[in-house]
Design a binder for these strands. Sequence first.
DNA 1: TCTCTCTCATTCATTTTTGTATATCAGATA
DNA 2: TATCTGATATACAAAAATGAATGAGAGAGA
Lengths: 297, 297
Amino acid sequence: MREIEPSWDFYRTFLTVLQEGSLSAAARELGLTQPTIGRHIDALEGVIGFQLFIRSPQGLIPTEAATDLKPHAEQLASNAAALLRAATGLGGGVRGTVRISASEVIGIEVLPPLLAALNDRYPDLVIELSLSDAVEDLMRREADIAVRMVAPEQDALITRRIGGIPLGLHAHRRYLDKHGFPDTLEDLLHHRTIGFDRESAFVRAIRKRVPLIELMRPSFRADSNLAQLAAIRAGSGIGVCQVALARRDPDIVRLFKTEFELPLETFVVMHENLKTTPRCRATFDALVEGLLAYIGT
Amino acid sequence: MREIEPSWDFYRTFLTVLQEGSLSAAARELGLTQPTIGRHIDALEGVIGFQLFIRSPQGLIPTEAATDLKPHAEQLASNAAALLRAATGLGGGVRGTVRISASEVIGIEVLPPLLAALNDRYPDLVIELSLSDAVEDLMRREADIAVRMVAPEQDALITRRIGGIPLGLHAHRRYLDKHGFPDTLEDLLHHRTIGFDRESAFVRAIRKRVPLIELMRPSFRADSNLAQLAAIRAGSGIGVCQVALARRDPDIVRLFKTEFELPLETFVVMHENLKTTPRCRATFDALVEGLLAYIGT
DNA sequence: TCTCTCTCATTCATTTTTGTATATCAGATA
DNA sequence: TATCTGATATACAAAAATGAATGAGAGAGA
């Protein structure tokens, strides 16, 4: 007895409906029509024997079954996208699409010039940049190359250690003019500081290094390092950011240069299977080279 | 501009052709016909702009492009299978299919009674057992649950340490009657021994523990632990196997009980997403319980 | 050499899938 | 209340994919 396997296209339709919330919206997204999408869902429900959505005049409400299957469908979509990227880059030469995952700060402040230079050099190279502080999983093919702040553990990944990007305490001159210069680290307790919203591995690392941080009550909180950087630039208070970025603005002052410096270990990581792919290889090398130069400054 | 994405079914067809080696064979496998399969491949080649196969009267010979894309397609198939497994097990209760990955020895000698009992208890549970000494990747959804001899490193996996399965040196009485009893470990150098064909992490671990092994020239080599066990049972010589398995046969004698004992660390591992799925939960618990009992004997 | 069997390619009828048009329902807004 | 906009469901026609049949080439074996 052979089970009849549903068309893989049904999975794509299913995921799109889940993402868009209605048959009509999914139809627009996929370039199909609403009746077709409806039939796909009907067929899929028929095969798996469960209702996936509750139809309503407002759209389709996913059942528990649908939410259970969602992560699988998402991974399927990631893989399909990765396959297509691999396909477009076939045939020698640096061409096709490469998808890079990086943190927001790195992606916004550091990578753009590097990637622009890369694009100048290889006009047929298309770069997708996925910014998130959540660690995107290279194993799941959500990206081809990642810039990471933690050493990856999987063996199937090839990793190049860049080194520590130095972080320092900074404030805008405008803030310091108004609130004074902290003379000692303890003075920070009476200053406006910029901190994290939630606990994270990165925050714990800072805490461990500088226990004083524990006592500080930040007057501005944001999980986004980018928002923190913006807050420093706007003169909201004293915060932690990359030394090299702060130096770009002559009005930003580094505080406690000797007492506080935290190196942020950085790695460029790529899936092993991609190392022979010209576009990935070129991008990987450019990122390594560019980030090394950035650290050197 | 929106790229036209090929049907995901084309990927399935592509992979099947790659696996089967011909359009006709793939058609039989998929329950379609040869012209259909041919059209799928034509369409896929059209979209990606590369020839995937060289047609010949003997079948289709994959081009480099095709072999480059193969791992992606395989992963896609794994994911689709995982989604389908998840779908069949929906709706509460222990039902549906669960896929277990284990080493050959564990899968053949240890798990069957456990799984039989599990199946007795849950008649609607279907178990797939994938035996390989290569570590199947749970992240790639090639299996739902794995019995492993190395601690996994990914955070997304939930792991239960079972403990060390004791390994010992054994020989069949028939062999010992013929070749005599080794009095010291050094005597092993003059005995027929059973060893590994290739180097592996496991072999290196043994070497480190018992450097003498280094000097031994096995007269029977096999990578398969199962084959080694069979060789011991057949009286081919002295080899390493699980103490508990050897004890089952009263004619197998354990040698150097005090001088040689190697605990084989064992873990049961499952993807975190599956922990709330009844069928996976029940299977996981049964494996943990059963293996703990096995170790206890 | 002939035949048998495997393969892929092509043609045409059939089946299936899809799209168009329309009906219906629910909510927001004038 | 009337209307407009979003949604799903359904009927029927159009388009597309599929299957059946056939042709042709390449080996294997008698």
